[in-house]
Amino acid sequence: MIRVTLWNVDLIFKIAGLGILISVLNMVLRQAGKEEQAQMLTLVGVVIVLMMVIRLVYQLFENVKVMFQL
C-alpha cells in the first residue's frame, strides 16, 4: 500500500519555499529589533508546515502498522 505520487514532490518544494521566505522575514524582523515577533513568526511557520504534512505523517504510521501487521 505504498504510493508515490508527484503531489508529494510538489509539497516538498512548497515547504522549502515557505522555509526560505520565513527565514528571510525572520532576519528582517530581528534586524528591526523585534525579537519576539520573529520568534512568533517561526512558531507560526512550523505550525503551518505541520498542518501541511500531518496527513502524510498519519499515512506513514498507517503504513508502518500494515507493514508490521500490528
Binding site: L18, V24, V28
Partner: peptide, 9 residues
C-alpha cells in the same frame, strides 16, 4: 514576503 508566503500556502 508575506505575499509570497500567502501565495505558497
Amino acid at each position: 514576503l508575506s505575499g509570497g508566503v500567502l501565495v505558497l500556502i
